[in-house]
């Protein structure tokens, strides 16, 4: 079997998918990043290698997510793309005709507007992360319910309570208040979902023309309560695609396929990188008052990539410099 590898290294989860040549998702892996993107990526590659047949050929690799540059270096990616383009490509391929993508991940949320298969507008959350996966995780932990059951519990609600969703801190104190007042847990959870959806639509979705079909993806799309709250607020059916939680990785793999269609061979380092000793380190460059925080990635003790400097003193000092990273804006 031959196919394409997509990697999405996000703040909360690290996802890998394997697409066959026709673009079908054959394997998908969802792991928690736990603040250690290199380990998570290596673990993901190890698991994927275990699941794929012995003679699988990787034709191209795409990396996305906030850790895309890191992932691009470690795995050897042919394409390093931002999350917005990756999510849009995945959704418009798997759900033809999609006009609106709602994406809520661990620490960021975005909205992407498409018309005739082309992205026409997008937005990401700015200064506030209220309503993202991390906050839902934290509230589930505080209420002592597994995050997997959050959505089903919220669906049992008959009269959702109103919770202030403007700010995660206030939402939490409001929830505690409602608990003290004696409201039922499902009503509080459903109220929280509604508050977060309201916040999302007013903040990220501000001024956007949301038209059906609407696709909801990202880790939070697993939460049926959030999906129902979106449907109620928008008045349309909200579609959660299969592989909703790894759509970024699917998009990256599709972009790798698009790139490799132009010919050339992949820069994939092989599944062996799972056992190579990669280290990410950093230092503050004190050569000028900018005090840039430079990141240095070493492979078996040898520097393979550096970035984070404004002047190019460090990033340009390696003989080998990754083309995809150099070409990024």
């Amino acid at each position: 079997m031959k196919g394409y590898l997509g990697i999405d290294v996000g703040s909360v989860s690290t996802n890998l998918v394997f697409l066959d040549e026709e673009g079908r998702v054959r394997e998908a892996i969802y792991l928690r990043t736990r603040g250690q993107p290199i380990n998570a990526l290596q673990e993901g590659l190890r698991q994927l290698a275990g699941r794929l047949p012995e003679n699988t050929g990787i034709l191209g690799v795409g990396a996305t997510g906030s850790g895309r540059f890191l992932a691009g270096i470690i795995a050897g990616a042919d394409v390093v793309k931002n999350e917005i383009t990756s999510h849009a490509v995945a959704a418009s391929t798997l759900v033809p005709g999609v006009q609106t993508i709602l994406e809520i991940g661990g620490q960021d949320s975005k909205i992407i507007i498409l018309r005739n298969g082309v992205v026409t507008d997008f937005a990401m959350n700015t200064v506030c992360a209220a309503g993202t996966g991390s906050f839902l995780d934290q509230q589930a932990a505080r209420l002592n319910i597994p995050i997997e059951e959050f959505g089903q519990l919220a669906l049992q609600s008959t009269a959702p309570v109103r919770i202030a969703g403007r700010c995660a801190v206030f939402a939490e104190s409001d929830m505690i208040h409602k608990q003290q007042m004696g409201y039922s847990l499902p009503d509080i959870l459903a109220g929280l979902c509604e508050a977060l959806v309201r916040n999302y639509l007013n903040n990220v979705g501000k001024g956007k023309e949301i038209l059906p079909p609407v696709v909801f993806q990202g880790g939070v799309a697993a939460n049926a309560g959030m999906r129902r709250a979106f449907e109620q607020a928008l008045g349309w059916k909200v579609y959660v695609p299969p592989h909703y939680d790894v759509m970024g990785a699917v998009g990256a793999a599709l972009l790798a396929r698009e790139k490799m269609a132009g010919g050339g061979s992949t820069r994939f380092r092989g599944f062996g990188v799972a056992d190579t000793n990669f280290k990410a380190g950093g230092f503050t460059c004190e050569n000028c008052p900018n005090l840039c925080e430079v990141v240095e990635i070493t492979c078996e003790g040898e520097a393979v990539a550096r970035w984070g400097d404004r002047c190019g003193r460090w990033s340009g000092s390696l003989g080998y410099q990754d083309e995809e990273i150099r070409n990024a804006v």
Partner: peptide
């Protein structure tokens, strides 16, 4: 990082059209 992501997506929006 946030600025770079937005800029890249914005340029893709025009280039992929």
């Amino acid at each position: 990082a946030g600025v770079v992501t937005r800029l890249e997506a914005f340029l893709d929006m025009m280039r992929r059209r």
